[in-house]
Each structure stands twice: as structure tokens, then as C-alpha cells.
Design a protein around this nucleic acid. Structure first.
Length: 615
RNA sequence: GCCCCAGUAGCUCAGCUGGUAGAGCGACGGCCUUGUAAGCCGUUGGUCAGGGGUUCAAAUCCCCUCUGGGGCUCCA
């Protein structure tokens, strides 16, 4: 907010004609107001004021009152005056803030507020003493801090054979024509703010068309409803996350509450570092916060845990919903939500040396995990300069595991709680990136939240904490659908990975005479933990095939006289064609393809005619 | 959160220089008994996102709200 304060004998003004589309309503155009012995505050509301109107009003009130006392003015005239800044707030908000300012001042002194949004004529007699003219700029305190903190990062590409290619994000020539992984180039373009397609991500239409997931307007922005088929995919991914953490990494699974009291110091501390992106609620006069990450409950639990150096590294896993009040304009489809399901694995290590061993192990596991998901992705590291210089060869050894070059962001100094992190980023159908798995090396939080282990000498020591996640389940669904959309664009038949296809096999009886046999076959397939159903609707075979194809069903079996008499099924494989197979061969093929991926049972009526349509 | 664009039947959309709505698909009913991407006939279907305003008259013009999309901003 900009203020120009004038101590005046009098001011006289009258609104003449509207200056904006929606000016404040006034009673008499052209009617003069006169105020004597006053401090006139010419006042410009700036864009930045919209972020924290309360604070701005408070600071402005203080500044005006301070000056009123100094010059001993009897009253204040707040005079909207757009011309003190070139970065204006929206008129709607400016009016709100000005009225708020009037309200606050009124508690202390007589105030007049000139109408907003009018061209006004005015006469002003300035007293002319040394303190009679003064200008002030009011800026939110937080904003000031932010500006001071900002030191730019530098960027480079690091290859598995240890080559460093410095790049400059503000100069696309330094990276656009490099002969290197095209997916990484796309990631860097995103990082540099170069966007190729300005359109809605394709997964939104697909998730509705396939009856997986949809918006729920009765909820808040970024909260979705999951239909039965969407639930199959979500459950399968969750089970995959469980298997990864529990079977693969031998982590201990826990669960912690979703709601926390804000007056607990450590909770308040974590909340304050997350700005205003949290959901708050008041119950029984107590203020609560909805968890925006798993750390709340986990850190409390680990603070109380007694850990010996002999037990480390200790891995803890939690899968649970988190809530973040992301800016409404940022919530798009499944890319960014306000409610999401997050698998979290935290590893508690003795020291940096053990932390690095653990990091490398997790890097290998997460890379293997991401590779198995049939998507296009690139890796980005963020690392504090000092750490990078000491450990460059170690990072190269990670890249050798992934066999991919990576973007490296080098932070001149420690800015967050971690000294090293990396992300797996998928590229969507519009060329935008979607962050998936991430791994962070945290050297600060153990001390901050009192998480200790007891060392060889019986002394308490702070842990090194590795935070890691495969990324939210919802995002993974989005990315898998985006991958299908990209295939479609490249004239490939769009598919879901077999293990995630809600219906894996559809049996189509040629007519009602073969319905019983069809159901018998479907049940047999289901017994093998493969999801099969039967299209028993009274439609032509052609129609049923068409519907199965538009549902992206990977295996379609047509059942008629021929099949029943020979025992050879006619199997239409999505994107490939029709082959002849015995039932056992079909089951074997699917089992082989799904391999160790999770098997979620069919949670729908086996007969299509028994299902409602959710579209 | 800000700026811009959009919202018409369950779905996809037409109508939008003002005269209170239409198609295809779906659903429902019937006929057909089906062999690898839509068999035929009929019926049903709407507070034109919600609210307010202008007007004799609003889906159509104006304002507000909600929801979605694009672009910013933000993402310890």
C-alpha cells in the first residue's frame, strides 16, 4: 500500500464521473464534501496487499495514527488514489481493504472515506509545516523476508559417465539442441518455464470416459469421487505401495492421526513453515490442523521411541490421506489435489555415512519401481553446493544405476531442511512435468523435533532422516492416463497396464444360449485372481466388441458354438488382433504378464446388465 | 489467490444480431437372436450452472456467486 499523507486546513471534493466499470455506489454525483483540520491519506492499494489484507490494514492504521498524533490532526480523510503505484490490486479487493482501513481507524479517530472508482475534483489546503507532507509504503513483513532470502541456483546436466554440461535456464540455446535424453530436455524446458501446449491435460477426459474418477462439486476444489473401476486402480496402486515398503524394504507400517492440535509447539512449528497451505478447523473451541504430510504423527512417534544404534537404519512406512490447501487455480485434474493419498517411507540413520548408503539403496529401489510402471520420466537432483562438490562421484554412481542423465540444481547454500534430494518427473501429454517419487536427505529435523538414538557410548545422538515417497496414488493414476494419451497421439492404441486395467478379460456370448457357459468361464478366470466379466446385454456382438474396445479392455473373448464345441477360445487382444487359445493358456499368459504386481478382486457385478452407469 | 475463457438433456454438442429449446448417443419399452468397433422402431428426457438486474419479452445483454479450463503466482 502506498500512502501520501497531507496535513491540511481543509479538503473539499466531489465525485464527477465513473473511472472504472463498477464504481462504489454513491448517492449524489457532483455533491461536495468538505472536511476541516484533517490528515488526508491518499491511498493506493497494490496487488501485493491482496495476499495479506489484515496485516496491511493493521500496518497502515498504525502508520496513519502515528502521524496523526505527531501533527495533532483532528480527523482523517482516506482518499482512494490509484496514481501512486503501477501495480494495482483488483478494484473489488481495494474497496474491501479501504473499508477495512476505515473501520480500524474509526475505532480511534473520526474518519471520512472518499468514494472509490470515481473521477473526483478536489481542493486541498496543505498546512505547509515540515511534517505536513509525508509518503509511506506499507509492505507485508513476510514479503520482505522472502526478497532477502532469494539467491539463485545454478543448473547443470550430469551424465552417467560423469560429464557435466552446464546450462542456463534463461538461455534455451544452452540446452535445447543437446544430444541427450529427450525426456530430460522436456523436463528442463518445464523448469525454464517453456510450455509447448496450452491445453487441459488429457487424463481429465479419460478418467471420466472410463468411469474411473470424477469431480465432486459439493466438496472443495481438488477433492474427487472414485467410481468402482477407479477404486480398483487406486487399490491396486496402494497395494503396490504396501508391497514395495513392507516386502521390498522391510519397513514397519504405522498409522497416525489425521487431525492435530495447533497449540502443540512442534505441530505449530511445522504448520508455520508450510505457510497458509493447511486446512484448519475449530471444534469445541480448539484449533486443529489437518495433516498436510505424514511427518506430524511420525515425528511425534519417533520422538517417544527408544532407538539403539544397533537397530539403525530403521524404516517406517505409512499410507494415508493428506490435505493441502493448494491455490485453487493450481488444482488441475489429478496433477495437484487438495486431498490425496500419500505413501511415505522414512529411514532413520546413525550418521551421514549410513544415510548415504541408505540413500543409494533407496535410489536403486525407487528407480526399479519407476521403471516397472511403463511411463516416460526423467530425474532431477537438487543439492547444496558444498555437498555436491564433495560427493559428485557418488551422485554419478547413482546415475549409473539409473543409466540416465539427470538435471542437477545446485543451491548456493542450505535453504531447506535437506542437503540433497531427487525426484522422478513424468512428462504429460501437454509437455508439462508431474513429480512422482522423491527422496530427501534431511540433516536438520531430527534435532529440531528431538528424534534421537543411543550410540555405543550410551549417548543420545540426532538421526539423519531420509524422507521418501513414490508420489501420491492419485498422481500416479494421472500419469498412467497421460501416458495412454501420449500413445494415442502417436497413433498407438491407448492402454492401461494390464495389472491396472479394471476389467482384464471380457467374455461376450454370441447369444443368450451361451450365457451360462460365459459366466462359468468368467468365474474360473476370477478364481485365478484375474478380473473377468460377461457382457450379457441384449446387443449385437459387434456392438459389444465396440463397447469393450472403448473401455480399453485388454482381452475380449467371443463365445459361441465354435468355441464351446472345440474348447478353443477366440481371444481378441487389444492392439494386436484375434488369436485362438485354450482357457488355461489365456490364464497362463495373463498370469505371466501381471507377474508379481498386485491382484485386486473384481468389485463389480460380473454381469454388465447388473451394473449402473456412472457417467 | 489474480487475470482471461467456458458452463444448454445422463454424455457429446447445436441454438446465442433478445420472441422461454434441438440433434446424436445413453436410458426405458418393443422387435430382432445376433460371430469381432454402433441392428431396427418407439418413448422418456431440460429451473439453459445458481442468484440478481435491464426489457413487454432473456439460454441469448449486464452484475454477483459456484464449478471447470488456460495463463500467472505459489509449491517448507
Amino acid at each position: 500500500m502506498r500512502l501520501l499523507l497531507i496535513h491540511a486546513d481543509y479538503i473539499e471534493y466531489a465525485p464527477l464521473q465513473p473511472a472504472i466499470k463498477e464504481p462504489e455506489k454513491i448517492e449524489n454525483i457532483g455533491k461536495y464534501e468538505r472536511v476541516d483540520e484533517c490528515l488526508v491519506a491518499f491511498c493506493t492499494i497494490e496487488k501485493i496487499d491482496e495476499e495479506n489484507p489484515e496485516e496491511i490494514v493493521k500496518l497502515a492504521t498504525e502508520a496513519i495514527i502515528e502521524h496523526v498524533k505527531m501533527v495533532k490532526a483532528n480527523r482523517v480523510v482516506v482518499y482512494p488514489y490509484a496514481h501512486l503505484s503501477s501495480d494495482l490490486a483488483s478494484p473489488k479487493n481495494a474497496i474491501k481493504i479501504l473499508h477495512k482501513l476505515k473501520e480500524e481507524l474509526e475505532k480511534i479517530i473520526e474518519v471520512k472515506l472518499a468514494p472509490f472508482g470515481w473521477y473526483k475534483t478536489f481542493t486541498l489546503k496543505c498546512k505547509g509545516h515540515p511534517l505536513s507532507e509525508l509518503s509511506r509504503t506499507i509492505v507485508p513483513k513476510e514479503e520482505k523476508k522472502k526478497e532477502e532470502k532469494h539467491i539463485p541456483s545454478s543448473f547443470l546436466i550430469l551424465t552417467p559417465d560423469g560429464k557435466e554440461i552446464p546450462i542456463d535456464l534463461s538461455n534455451p540455446n544452452t540446452f535445447l539442441n543437446l544430444d541427450i535424453d529427450p525426456t530430460l530436455i522436456k523436463l528442463i524446458k518445464n523448469e525454464a518455464g517453456i510450455k509447448e501446449k496450452h491445453q487441459a491435460p488429457a487424463h481429465i477426459k479419460i478418467m471420466k470416459k472410463l468411469e474411473l474418477i470424477d469431480y465432486e462439486p459439493a466438496s472443495d476444489v481438488g477433492h474427487f469421487r472414485f467410481y468402482p473401476k477407479g477404486m480398483i486402480i487406486k487399490t491396486a496402486l496402494e497395494e503396490f505401495a504396501n508391497n514395495f515398503a513392507i516386502k521390498e524394504l522391510k519397513a514397519m507400517r504405522i498409522e497416525t492421526p489425521m487431525i492435530y492440535k495447533l497449540d502443540e509447539p512442534d505441530i505449530a512449528e511445522q504448520a508455520s513453515r508450510f505457510k497458509e497451505k493447511d486446512y484448519r478447523l475449530k471444534v469445541d473451541n480448539k484449533e486443529f490442523i489437518l495433516r498436510f504430510a505424514g511427518d506430524f504423527g511420525l515425528f511425534r512417534m519417533m520422538k517417544d521411541a527408544i532407538m539403539s544404534y544397533k537397530q539403525l537404519p530403521i524404516r517406517v512406512y505409512e499410507l494415508s490421506p493428506s490435505f493441502r490447501l493448494e491455490q485453487s487455480g493450481e488444482c488441475v485434474g489429478l496433477k495437484r489435489l487438495r486431498a490425496f493419498t500419500m505413501p511415505d517411507i522414512h529411514c532413520f540413520c546413525k550418521n551421514l555415512e549410513e544415510g548415504l548408503l541408505e540413500y543409494k539403496l533407496l535410489f536403486e529401489k525407487y528407480t526399479e519401481f519407476t521403471n516397472s510402471m511403463e511411463i516416460e520420466y526423467a530425474i532431477a537432483f537438487r543439492v547444496v553446493k558444498e555437498f555436491y562438490l564433495k560427493n559428485k562421484e557418488w551422485i554419478v554412481s547413482l546415475l549409473k544405476i539409473a543409466n540416465k542423465p539427470a538435471l542437477i540444481e545446485i543451491l548456493p547454500e542450505m535453504k531447506h531442511y535437506w542437503i540433497l534430494k531427487h525426484e522422478y518427473q513424468a512428462i504429460d501429454s501437454t509437455g508439462g512435468n508431474i513429480q512422482l517419487a522423491t527422496l530427501q536427505l534431511d540433516v536438520e529435523d531430527a534435532a529440531r523435533y528431538g528424534i534421537y538414538y543411543v550410540d555405543e557410548n550410551g549417548e543420545k545422538k540426532g538421526c539423519i532422516i531420509l524422507h521418501s515417497s513414490m508420489g501420491s496414488i492419485e498422481r500416479w493414476i494421472g500419469v498412467i492416463l497421460e501416458q495412454a494419451a501420449k500413445d494415442m497421439e502417436n497413433n498407438k492404441v491407448p492402454k492401461l497396464p494390464l495389472w491396472l486395467s479394471p476389467i482384464q478379460v471380457r467374455i461376450i456370448p454370441v447369444n443368450m444360449n451361451y450365457l451360462d457357459k460365459a459366466i462359468e468361464i468368467a468365474l474360473k478366470i476370477n478364481e485365478n485372481n484375474i478380473r473377468a466379466d460377461v457382457d450379457d446385454r441384449n446387443e449385437s456382438v459387434a456392438k459389444k466388441i465396440r463397447d469393450a474396445e472403448t473401455e480399453w479392455i485388454p482381452y475380449i473373448v467371443v463365445l459361441g458354438e465354435k468355441e464351446v464345441s472345440t474348447g478353443e477360445l477366440s481371444v481378441r487382444i487389444r492392439g494386436e488382433g484375434i488369436v485362438s487359445k485354450k482357457l488355461e493358456e489365456l490364464i497362463e499368459e495373463i498370469n505371466k504378464k501381471i507377474s508379481s504386481k498386485p491382484r485386486v478382486p473384481l468389485c463389480l457385478p460380473i454381469r454388465l446388465s447388473a451394473r449402473p452407469s456412472f457417467k
